[in-house]
Design a protein around this nucleic acid. Structure first.
Lengths: 196, 196, 196, 196
DNA sequence: CGCTAACCGAGACGGTACGTCCAGTCTTGCT
DNA sequence: AGCAAGACTGGACGTACCGTCTCGGTTAGCG
């Protein structure tokens, strides 16, 4: 009864088209800055008309953001093997490596673009950052349970220090290396262990 | 040993005009995003013709960058009073406050805008970041001398942690508060003290 | 035999817009010199964006030329009533009057502008001058048939003399009057009748 | 008294510079249209500063006009040998040849350029056209005296027909040949002889 | 011979038009 | 109704060029 999902009249939205657009946008994001990419380029690359772009997305930013999210869902996962602490160290190192890679540049570009638009920034924060942050805090709490970290630790602050210490050099174009990442991790770890 | 200061032929560049342009650009930067500011706006605000803009700068970006650098030389100084450690803590707190202020937003915009242009990033790194970083490391070394921090500490890494932990929330639009900044400082401090 | 009228894909060019542009250009041509008219003026007057101008015309000159041709197809017709000879005399007088009028000035301006661009000149020659010239020669031939002019007459040369003797004073800003035009006509007529 | 020619103090105007400017302008006039020539080009070509240009001439037009007049004082003279009539025929032919030459093109450009500015046109009319016109009328009157032409002839009109019939084809880019010029002359001559 | 006024080259400057580019909307006919 | 093609508005961009200006350096001729 009730037709569950009353199919709307007319030709349904082409999933193929949607994917083609996001893929084209993704491809362009790897090579160009946010503001350099023209909507017409996306349309052409995807074999699609500009009107179709705007039928489904509010503007260029929205397309590029979604394109990024689509490809970036599983970037730098926290991993599974080993003790919680080992996973945290491993995460820090992989984050450093990601940030200096081509994909990391795309991420930084995104971060740039959303600064200008509070709404996008909020959306990004909620749909991308918060989930991974929660995941990170969980790992920290596991480490506490496993007795690797003291109960007094502030998981949020810990993660902030780990990520922040990797993002800063990436933003400045400073050298980013596995070894530096490990040293940062060690220092944060000591800070965490020394917590009252 | 001649030439050295041989004045070039022709009407000399008007210093007044140059300053008017940079000031106008600065003023606009405080209210608007990098991409929102129009060249003609800068020109009009400065009482200058567009041609003059392009005579001296390659494009809009270059003007805005220089405008920022010009006004931003003395942002968030390390301060003078108190022990080295107190100065570091104070710096961290003031940095956090700066980053959430209007001026901090301009800074973040800039930081992210230069990601697109390696040359600009390098220039920014050398002329803005390195000098302040050297200053910061010096304060850390003073703290070591004063016995407030162990000799084994890595000044660069320490500063990276302090700044990075403040910049990350700023980029994401997370809450930034004096208290959070102090807690980050405490944690870094513990990490530093625990160094072998 | 297919295609022939195969409508091209996409939104068709707006005929309304095209006409609005040419009309606006025509209106401006009456008041201002070729070089004084700004593209933005044409656009504004036509309620159109500059981009649209340049989508269909290579540059300002091309717009103004076409605007002129559009409105000037029927300038100074050869008339219908009376004997062929009377029509020729009448034409000469009206040409003189046209040349000293506002519209005549536009015509002279056009003549100026096309001197600089051989292609435009050729286009103008073919699409504006030749047809009217043919018409003029026809009238001369009719006069021959009617016995008003001898068979030995050279129609082209006759017309050249009639028009040339009116254009020269116009170019120089000499006085141009009905009486002078008539005297020129009489003299050319005598020359024609005296032909061997 | 009143010093008549009280030499002004200071360095006198450099005649060399003046000539260099006019020569440079002349050279450019041969290759480019009136509106295509940039003041800076003239200055550079003449090895002179733009300021110097505007110290002595009101604007670009004035420079180019004077440059033309300077070089064109003796274009197409009426000649000396032979009977008055022969000189008139000769003049017509040489005028036709001049008009289709490179220098003729410059002349036409000038003629049309001054249409936009009544003052220039008047100046040109008075200082260039009238003197040569007087000369032409004189030749006609000599022909009358020599019995080659009737007393009733209108010299001005005659010259207008001769010149106009050559200028018109030149403006339109029609073929201009010696033979056509001669035929025009013959026709005008017959018209003149037939005068009551 | 030195003074001084006016000249000059170099080139910066304000103003203004040009022609290009791009975001986002609208129109048409096909599917 | 979805969609490709592509015309259209609005407005910024960066270039070109006119005529003015400001420098320092140069060249007469007067004292």
């Amino acid at each position: 009864m009730e037709g569950s999902s009353k199919r709307p009249a007319g030709r349904p939205r082409s999933e193929k088209t949607r994917k083609a657009i996001l893929k084209a946008a993704s491809r362009l994001l790897k090579r160009h800055g946010f503001e350099e990419i023209a909507t017409q380029q996306i349309a052409k690359e995807a074999g699609v008309s500009t009107a179709t772009l705007y039928r489904w997305w509010k503007n260029k930013q929205a397309i590029l953001l979604e394109a990024y999210l689509e490809t970036a869902r599983e970037l730098v996962p926290y991993g599974k093997g080993g003790s919680p602490l080992a996973r945290l160290r491993n995460y820090t190192v992989r984050l450093a490596e990601f940030l200096k890679s081509e994909e990391g540049l795309v991420f930084l570009r995104l971060l740039l673009a959303i600064q200008e638009r509070p709404k996008l920034r909020k959306a990004f924060y909620k749909s991308v950052f918060l989930p991974r942050r929660a995941e990170g805090c969980e790992v920290v709490r596991e480490a506490v349970k496993a007795g690797e970290l003291p109960k007094t630790i502030d998981p949020d602050l810990t993660i902030n220090l780990l990520i922040g210490s990797q993002i800063l050099p990436a933003l400045l174009g400073q050298e980013v290396s596995r070894e530096l990442a490990e040293r940062a991790f060690e220092m944060v770890l000591r800070g965490a262990r020394g917590a009252r």
